[in-house]
Write a protein that binds this DNA or RNA. Structure first.
Lengths: 335, 335
DNA sequence: CTGTTAGCGCATTCAG
DNA sequence: CTGAATGCGCTAACAG
């Protein structure tokens, strides 16, 4: 910068001002300075700039559990787009659902003085994400509600979506409906099960534990569980699956020799319409979650909020792929 | 840091040294310092640290064209994993194939003094990525070779993969084979077409322009083109598709009323085995590209290379989903 | 409108 | 082994 100042015949301070469009600098001077900047190929050093600024660095942290999941990639895209709109740059970390790694990443981001962090938390205790634990840097949770800390968060309407999707099954006359989901310790998983149960209750039914499986973390496990359930002496005529891994596993099981079962689930995914199996899905826009979370963060950074924790719930839409579910004959359709 | 020093009864310099495991500090002093650090909840300021260091910031930039594509999400994961292994943090930007945005993002990263940048370039001229244009910060290209600049790059074996996949079709007796691909200006697209042509040549054939379509950027366009080609009076009996968007479009076209055609293509994707259509695919590991690119970058940062541009080619593997392609009767199978 | 002074938090350099 | 001085590149805060 000193070089530029020399080249332009002004003081460094003037260069600094010209570069940040300070209105107090004369137009003629500004032109002169900008010419020198161009001539010397000079570029502002953001590191020094943000050191001086003390707080803020125009960086926005994002910590996700699994970037390989297109869901989180979309969420990241949402964060990036809004961040960019506000002149901020996204720093991305992947925890692979590892609490320790999450701590490391968050710590790292704090050390870099990012302006805020969007976190998809790996664990159920979020006390380490309190602003006080983060040198005052605000964090916003995505897809899971805070526990042990008063934090902003953006959630999906897990309960509503699961209820609506399951209702489609009961409305079609199904009375024996199975459930496949990931670990019940996951908030989303628990909520979706609750929604599932609510829809059953509306129809005067309740979950049958023989047909309920939790802890299915990948497609293979889900497929296996689906086969087991469908092989029971008195198998369900329909399945509700709590996320796309489980849905896919169920589809695999159903397209095979086993007795067909109607499927409804949570999460839309590409190709859902190409699997040759009718599928009712509670869909939502993952990017929207990223956008909303980033907006909360920006509000908090700008202090335009009132300080009380906010909670945004992103709605789901019911979509249907493939042929409509055949309406079962009234009464319990026996095998 | 001064606070910690005071608390520990030492000079700030000693705190600094203790924190970076300088062997010259006495063990007892180190313990004292670390205790104070913990007591005060002190955290090193990476911003100041990297300002002092002048170069480097333990940040590694990644600029991709489309994070929504699982391919690039996987690539990002590869970059992140190796970066993390080396104590570096990934900063991610998305260009949406926009040259201007790419320049902005790269410029931004340079201003932040990242140690290096992995770029999936949007355009065909890469002169703006020369180290001299980047204040000496090295860039590595991923999936596309440099042009107008001597840069390291990591490529996929586009030619070989396309040749191998197409060969499967000719070996099965197909003689009228169509081609669907994105814009021919894309290097990968051109290479894959070249590989397609090479396999045809081996079988004494050549591309029939009636069956060749470029510029298909999404599934819908690919599906439409596939339908058109398959509706010709003398339609091809097989199609080679140059990327997963095109493959999916072709699958959609083929599963419909149209005369079936054998399919081979580039890129594997999830569910490829669930579409009910036999599919030969040239597959490769996108994360591997990210890892290799990051390794090149780290080498260059550490100056452990000899300065000449390096080029790494990631191999492809032929995978087959669904039933094997039925072997056509010898001779040209007429409709 | 422009320049001068001072310091953000840290680590290199040189003295103890 | 430890400490003091110095400056990384930039910009508030105060002069002129």
């Amino acid at each position: 910068m000193a070089d530029v100042a020399r080249h332009a015949g002004v003081a460094p301070m003037t260069v600094s001002r010209a570069l940040q469009d300070d209105p107090r600098v004369a137009p003629s001077t500004r032109v002169k300075v900008l010419a020198s900047v161009a001539a010397l190929g000079y570029r502002l050093n953001e590191v020094a700039r943000s050191l001086r600024a003390g707080q803020s660095s125009d960086l926005l942290g994002l910590v996700v559990t699994n970037l390989a999941n297109p869901f989180y990639a979309q969420l990241a895209l949402g964060v990036e787009s809004l961040a960019a709109e506000h002149g901020m740059t996204m720093v991305l970390g992947n925890t692979a659902e590892d609490h320790g790694r999450e701590r490391e990443l968050v710590d790292n981001l704090v050390s870099r003085r990012v302006s805020g962090i969007v976190v998809v938390p790996a664990g159920n205790d979020h006390s380490h994400l309190r602003p006080s634990a983060l040198d005052g840097i605000p964090a916003v949770l995505a897809t899971r509600p805070p526990s042990g800390a008063d934090l902003d968060c953006v959630l999906v309407d897990d309960f509503g979506g699961a209820t609506a999707a399951t209702r489609r099954l009961t409305e079609a006359g199904h009375r024996r409906i199975g459930f496949l989901g990931p670990l019940p310790g996951l908030w989303t998983s628990a909520e979706r099960f609750r929604g599932f149960g609510a829809a059953l209750a509306e129809a005067g039914l309740e979950p049958d534990e023989r047909y309920v499986r939790f802890g299915l973390r990948d497609v293979r496990a889900a497929e296996h569980a689906a086969r087991e359930i469908l092989s029971l002496p008195d198998p369900p005529t329909a399945l509700f699956t709590a996320n796309n891994r489980n849905t896919i596993g169920a589809v695999r099981a159903v397209t095979d020799a086993h007795p067909a079962a109607a499927l409804a689930g949570f999460d839309d995914f590409e190709f859902a319409d190409m699997l040759g199996v009718p599928l009712t899905l509670a869909a939502y826009d993952p990017a929207e979650i990223g956008v909303q979370a980033t907006q909360l963060l920006i509000d908090r950074i700008a202090q335009t909020d009132d300080g009380t924790p906010r909670r945004i719930v992103v709605p789901t839409t019911l979509t249907h792929h493939g042929q409509p579910h055949p309406r079962l004959p009234s009464g319990d359709p026996s095998p």
